[in-house]
């Protein structure tokens, strides 16, 4: 808990400093609106980052295809709604597709790559992303689409900005996911198995951990998160296959904010990135390149967290 408070303190101070820097002299209500708007975007980065970190901690794979999986889920859910299928059923089927795709990748592809180093595993998942993206672009014509949820209509006003229930749901689910997954990984037997597996697959299997079952569960969980993220992106960003697929790259930045380890840090860091990105709108020279914020922040995080190390030694990944 203390670590979480420290994180909040550091990220909060960073946002505050930036707010003072770029928004000096701007009226406070305006800044408040940009902060709230940024938190809404940041929570999307965070949600995507959480999905990445969960899978990475459990299996050692950084899944670049998770955006594509989410995108496929969103497209299918949208299509089913268009065909007049009851909305709730459509969403559940969309989420199920995400789980299915993730599990299929886990069972068919990953066993052949188990011996590869983490970077190669990560880069290879791009192949899966391209397969999904190509299939979706082939099946659906390029039309403007809008993915609606009933929660879009309800809203609360925070600091002068309307925040829809969908956005609140993203924040709530992110926090819930952080708590539940942290507890599962630390307190339960399956969580222990997952961590052992991520640490050393060979030794884990030697000491009798049911590797395939544990891995499948981890991928299914990550697939569900990807699919949910995809639906949220479709609703809150836009339902364009390429856009959702490659939103994974800023989400990686959020994952880096938690050093690919700490879920609370991903959440706090991701939200802070969104806020900083949004605040940059107030700066004339920087506003056209404000999406650069997550990347700059992630690079700084990587540099800072590795500052204690002088030189690395082979084998110490």
């Amino acid at each position: 808990m203390r670590a979480v408070l420290i994180s909040i303190g550091i990220w909060g101070a960073l946002c505050l400093a930036l707010a003072l820097l770029v928004a000096w002299g701007k009226p406070a209500p305006v800044i408040g609106m940009f902060v709230v708007s940024g938190m809404a975007v940041g929570s999307l980065y965070a949600l995507g980052g959480i999905g990445l970190v969960v899978l990475y901690r459990a299996t050692g794979v950084l899944n670049l295809a998770s955006g594509a999986v989410g995108m496929a889920s969103a497209m299918v859910a949208w299509q089913l709604v268009q065909w007049g299928i009851f909305a709730l059923v459509s969403w559940i089927l969309g989420l199920a597709l995400g789980v299915l795709l993730a599990v299929a990748y886990c069972r068919v592809i990953t066993p052949y790559m188990a011996w590869r180093e983490p970077v190669v595993k990560a880069v290879a998942s791009l192949g899966f992303a391209l397969v999904i993206l190509g299939t979706v672009s082939f099946l659906w014509p390029d039309d403007p689409r809008r993915f609606e949820l009933p929660t879009d209509k309800a809203f609360v006003t925070i600091l002068g900005l309307r925040v829809t229930a969908t956005r609140l749901m993203v924040v709530a689910v992110s926090i819930l996911a952080v708590i539940v997954i942290s507890v599962v990984l630390v307190r339960t037997r399956i969580g222990l198995h997952m961590r052992a597996l991520a640490n050393d697959r060979r030794i884990a299997s030697l000491i009798g951990i049911p590797v395939v079952r544990v891995e499948t569960m981890a991928w299914a969980m990550a697939g569900l998160l990807s699919a949910f993220t995809g639906l949220m992106f479709a609703n809150l960003v836009r339902l364009e296959p390429v856009v959702i697929t490659f939103l994974i790259i800023p989400c990686i930045a959020a994952a880096i904010a938690g050093r690919l380890q700490s879920l609370p840090d991903v959440l706090i860091g991701g939200i802070a990135m969104g806020v900083i990105e949004s605040l940059l709108t107030l700066s004339d020279p920087l506003k056209s390149i404000r999406p650069v914020a997550p990347f700059v922040i992630a690079s700084v995080v990587l540099l800072v967290t590795n500052r204690g190390r002088r030189l690395t030694f082979a084998g110490e990944d």
Binding site: L62, E117, P118, V119, A122, V123, I249, P250, I252, A253, I256, L260, I289, P291, V292, P294, F295, V296, A298, S299, L302, L303, N306, R307, R309, R310, L311, T312, A314, E316, D317
Partner: peptide, 24 residues
């Protein structure tokens, strides 16, 4: 950063640079 990192972390630093350059 490469002097202190290797493997996935180093790859991710370079990916962040690529992401930033794309925006610019």
């Amino acid at each position: 950063p490469a002097l202190r990192m290797r493997g996935l972390y180093l790859a991710l630093v370079t990916l962040m640079v690529a992401g930033g350059l794309e925006v610019v």
